[in-house]
Amino acid sequence: MNLLVCISKTPETTAKIAFKENDTQFDTDGVQFIMNPYDEWYALVRAIELKEQLGTGKVIAINVGPPSNDIVIRKALAIGADEAVRVNGEEKSATFVSKQIANYAKENNIDIVFLGKETIDYNGSLVGGMISELLDVPFLSYASNLEMEGDTATVTCDIEGGEEILKVKTPFVISAAKGLAEQRIPNMRGIMMAKRKPLVVIDPVEVTENEAIASYSIPDSKSGVKLLDPENMDELVRLLHEEAKVI
């Protein structure tokens, strides 16, 4: 089976967030980037496990982004992807990214596309549905378990306050939530091997921009905490009722 894993990068979670060009661009100066946790911990690892279980097939990591993303892609190879592809373009919008990935999947006979349930910076959660539609295949979203038997998958999908257990045949797209796999830390051997694995760079297909971030702003911060006397919980209850009006 050919398994394609979508890998994105995101600012390291404690990174300072600032903007430039009149608040129209994210200032990446001094920002450390990491692989999006849902992609790294769950989507990628489950794809690798599946290949190991089947004993055949390959795991291809794909990223849409600039050359500076190669470091994140190399990490995917170090964790265990067999090969990698980078579509050389700025990740302008979910539509742009999805069309690049769907295009690659169509041309390369992919059985399952794995991705993260969302990126933790922009929290779009749109790419999976878009790729599925472009490929005209089912989309199993927020998956916390995947078992394969032949070409049939049984997938547990998280829904609000519960889960759905679904059955589907390949090809399909699956987005990973917590639980789909256990995080793997790349070892020295993996890191060395990653250097010899292929990382192919391809040109993007053209996409019309349907939406764009016109500007960024910083939310109003809290006005400051009101510290209360631990001996007087009646006062907290009164404030929650009368001032905050939440109870």
């Binding site: 749109l126 549905g129 878009m130 599925s132």
Partner: peptide
């Protein structure tokens, strides 16, 4: 989870901004 999974699909079908 349902709405977000649908949104991407519908955006592609309608060639819409999402």
């Amino acid at each position: 989870s349902k709405g977000k999974s649908l949104a991407g699909r519908i955006a592609i079908k309608l060639d819409a901004a999402a």
